[in-house]
Amino acid sequence: MTAAAGRAVLSIRNLRKEYRAGQPVLKDISLEIDGSGLTAIIGPSGTGKSTLIRCINRLVDPTAGEILFEGGDLARLSGGALRQARRRIGMVFQEYNLVERLSVIENVLSGRLGYLAPWRAFLRRFPDEDVARAFDLIEAVGLEESFATRRADALSGGQRQRVGIARALMQAPALILADEPTSSLDPKTSVEIMELLSEMSARRSIPTLVNIHNVGLARRYAGRIIGMTGGAVVYDGPPAGLSDADLKTIYGGEDFL
């Protein structure tokens, strides 16, 4: 193992996923995510970006390969060990996936569920320090304190995504995965959310892996861009190095440029 690999928070080796046998969606992907900054994955729809992100925290089970994270292979974990690993990985979803009928603060506190005894979860007896931290995070993601007791279904899309980010941060994660966090948002809100993600990633030094459709946003906020097409990585480097020729390889054709 090289010194660089040792520093990596996450190393993916030969990751393969087939939903139907013989038709791989991910073709032996290998990646290293090191300890800082925001990494954007770009690529056309249906190219396996979401599958890749979801394999990492095992919302999707990979077919083959290794996902090394904090000394274990995520691809082989199950039960309690998998849950312990998931506690360390925050996730932000395209459609926010907040529990609509719960209040904002309950959604944020959900980030601590991996550490909480069930009776406390049922009775909503969260430790005081968790509640205090949840309030801090609600403000840190740009919402006012008064939002805490509002029900999630009363919020706008941008506000919901902020709550989603607060929930992920509440886990105090070693890694954040964001699965197209801006695809359901208008352009202005998308910028705000990407700004927030990159700011949190930098300030709290949590490496963040973002799936994104918008190449402009990716260039603007990511320190590293991974271009995928047909289930394989075809570009991996800084935004500055991403040429029109690379984009053509990634998306095929050039009409969109």
Partner: peptide, 25 residues
């Protein structure tokens, strides 16, 4: 199912998923 999946992704165990993702719904 997405709301449940999100809570499961935080590393919550089955009972906690019940408490904070299933029952509220």
């Amino acid at each position: 199912p997405k709301q449940v999946e999100a809570v499961r992704a935080t590393g919550a165990g089955f009972l906690n998923v019940l408490a904070m993702a299933v029952f509220p719904q």
